[in-house]
């Protein structure tokens, strides 16, 4: 009994050390920009860099667009699969899992072959076209997370009866979807949205190969050319991801209270 507890603690300590030591080391290193003292100089340099602001702003906008596309694509799909096409569930689940199996590099090469400037739909020929391509590519990458979050949310409510109740009251499909279903899976959609945001902010491969002015390639650029700033940027990126995770926890807890009361 005592031995097994000791073993558990040892595993936890080793696991924590494996994750925390590099993190602490990065934080410590990021604070040493000024010789001989700890300071937030590296963070000041990073945050005042106009390229940081431009790339972070761009990635945030793309992330928001991706969330909108993802929600519009996933909510109706998951809803129809549950309501009318339950037999298609395995197929849809398989399709939504594909982005986890197919690496982004393959996806982006596919994009470049299909949508290059001499193709039938030259999306890469313009900045706006690249933005569209990037958004759609990210929506694909975020599909496994968004679909699972929304699907779980839909399973928690009786969508069939709610749909029929709304239908019997004269509601059309868009009304049912936007006024009855979507508000009741809001928490699930938010979880999916935060995960999408975290994925898009740090994504490098697609943004880099499409030559988009995104945050991921900027991180790489700074990392290759500077000493202290990359550490500060890494910590900032971590904090954004953690903030997203924290927000999922907060809204998720709200939903649990709501459900328990129900």
């Amino acid at each position: 009994m005592k031995n097994s507890r000791l073993g558990s603690w040892l595993t936890i300590v080793l696991g924590a050390a494996y994750f925390l030591i590099p993190l602490i080391a990065t934080v410590e290193f990021s604070l040493r920009m000024k010789r001989g003292e700890y300071s937030l100089e590296a963070y000041r340099v990073v945050l005042t860099d106009p390229r940081f602001q431009a790339t972070f702003g761009y990635s945030t906008l793309i992330a928001l667009a991706t969330i909108v596309v993802g929600v519009l694509l996933v909510v109706p799909t998951a809803y129809w699969v549950q309501l009318r096409l339950p037999r298609w569930r395995p197929v849809v689940e398989f399709v939504t899992l594909l982005p986890l199996v197919i690496p982004p590099i393959v996806l982006v090469f596919g994009f470049l072959r299909l949508y290059n400037s001499s193709s039938w739909l030259p999306l890469t020929g313009s900045a706006r076209g690249t933005d569209v391509l990037l958004t759609l590519g990210y929506a694909t990458l975020a599909l496994p997370y968004m679909y699972r979050a929304v699907d779980t949310g839909l399973r928690a409510i009786d969508i069939r009866t709610l749909t029929q109740a709304a239908e019997s009251l004269g509601a059309s499909w868009p009304t049912i979807l936007f006024r009855v279903i979507l508000p009741n899976v809001r928490v699930a959609v938010l979880s999916g949205a935060f995960l999408t945001f975290a994925i898009v902010i740090g994504e490098f491969t697609i943004a880099s190969l499409l030559n988009a002015p995104a945050f991921g390639p900027y991180l790489q650029l700074i990392g290759a050319n500077r000493a202290y700033e990359p550490s500060a940027l890494a910590i900032i990126a971590f904090m954004i991801t953690w903030a997203c995770m924290g927000l999922i926890q907060v809204v998720g807890r709200g939903a649990n209270r709501y459900r328990a009361a129900r």
Partner: peptide, 15 residues
């Protein structure tokens, strides 16, 4: 939604 019926369900089905 075109039949002008009112329906009450066993599970209430309130939004």
């Amino acid at each position: 939604n075109q039949r002008k019926i009112g329906m009450v369900f066993q599970s209430y089905a309130l939004f």
